[in-house]
Computed example of a mutant assay.
Amino acid sequence: MQRDYTALNSPASHTIRARTLAVGLAVAAALALTACGGGAESGSGKSVDSLETGAPTGKNAAPKGGDSGDAAVEAKRPQLRLDTSEEEQSRFTDAYNACLQAHDVPMNTERAAAAGAKQAGPKVSEKDYPKYQAAYDACLVKLPRQPPETSPETNTRYADDYRAYVKCLQGRGMKIHLTPDTSVYPDGLAWTYDDASVSLPEAEQSAADRACTLEAFGGK
């Protein structure tokens, strides 16, 4: 199984990294911290997981698991649901980021202070990921696992659900389109904005992302 080090908090709204295909679940407490968190500028990126951590993915991700140690870590990781509350997701985010900070990963304290947040997220450029790989490995046990519905490994209808998710976002006013994303899975999907403009205010995009995730992946 491909190990993905991203967590959960960047919805369809702003600086969105294009390194993973998992659907975004909105986390209000993390929105302010992820406005520039590790990816392209607003209006130019794709939808990803909702806990923006700046954690390595794609070519920088840890190798595939398989031994008993990996299995034990995976079993202890928090499991998110499609309807996990924003408050609960925020607690997971803070616990994971606090672990990274304790392992000397540089943190974006300036953005946290500006947002009035107690816990900052990591501030690591892609080229520096290997330097902090040991820290990400040590904190993996605190990284929430995505809802199984949002992974092609655990959802046989993932492609159809993701297309429905994108169609739902478009119906709510987001000017986006579907695009392939092979950074984590060979048949991965993501979305990107039609142009450089942001079509909805941040709060509305967050609400649309959460509603469309539940509708498309939860059959609601």
Rank of each mutant, 00 (worst) to 15 (best):
residue 125 S to C: 13
residue 208 A to P: 03
residue 8 L to S: 14
residue 119 Q to D: 10
residue 46 K to I: 00
residue 160 D to L: 14
residue 78 P to K: 04
residue 158 Y to K: 01
residue 24 G to S: 13
residue 118 K to E: 14
residue 22 A to N: 09
residue 132 Y to A: 03
residue 143 L to A: 04
residue 80 L to E: 11
residue 61 A to E: 02
residue 136 Y to D: 02
residue 15 T to M: 10
residue 36 C to V: 14
residue 197 S to H: 07
residue 205 Q to A: 12
residue 128 D to R: 14
residue 2 Q to P: 15
residue 59 K to I: 13
residue 187 D to M: 06
residue 92 F to H: 15
residue 35 A to C: 12
residue 183 S to K: 11
residue 108 N to L: 06
residue 206 S to I: 01
residue 99 C to Y: 00
residue 168 C to N: 12
residue 44 S to C: 09
residue 14 H to T: 09
residue 72 A to R: 15
residue 172 R to Q: 14
residue 107 M to I: 02
residue 134 A to K: 10
residue 135 A to R: 02
residue 103 H to V: 00
residue 24 G to N: 09
residue 51 L to T: 13
residue 211 A to N: 03
residue 124 V to R: 01
residue 168 C to F: 13
residue 111 R to C: 13
residue 164 A to L: 07
residue 89 Q to N: 12
residue 42 S to G: 14
residue 75 A to Q: 13
residue 135 A to M: 04
residue 66 G to F: 03
residue 3 R to S: 09
residue 180 P to E: 04
residue 46 K to D: 06
residue 38 G to D: 11
residue 52 E to Q: 12
residue 171 G to Y: 12
residue 219 G to W: 05
residue 207 A to S: 08
residue 125 S to M: 12
residue 43 G to I: 01
residue 55 A to H: 01
residue 147 P to W: 02
residue 193 Y to F: 10
residue 131 K to W: 06
residue 15 T to L: 11
residue 142 K to F: 12
residue 37 G to M: 08
residue 53 T to A: 10
residue 112 A to D: 08
residue 100 L to W: 00
residue 78 P to H: 09
residue 75 A to K: 15
residue 118 K to L: 10
residue 199 S to E: 07
residue 76 K to S: 15
residue 189 L to Y: 02
residue 166 V to G: 00
residue 125 S to R: 13
residue 171 G to V: 11
residue 33 L to N: 09
residue 91 R to N: 13
residue 153 E to Q: 13
residue 145 R to F: 00
residue 149 E to I: 00
residue 205 Q to C: 05
residue 201 P to V: 08
residue 22 A to Y: 05
residue 187 D to F: 07
residue 61 A to W: 01
residue 217 F to I: 02
residue 71 A to N: 06
residue 166 V to N: 02
residue 108 N to M: 07
residue 140 L to Y: 06
residue 169 L to Y: 02
residue 103 H to S: 08
residue 118 K to I: 05
residue 130 P to D: 11
residue 164 A to K: 14
residue 66 G to E: 06
residue 137 D to S: 05
residue 217 F to H: 03
residue 117 A to L: 06
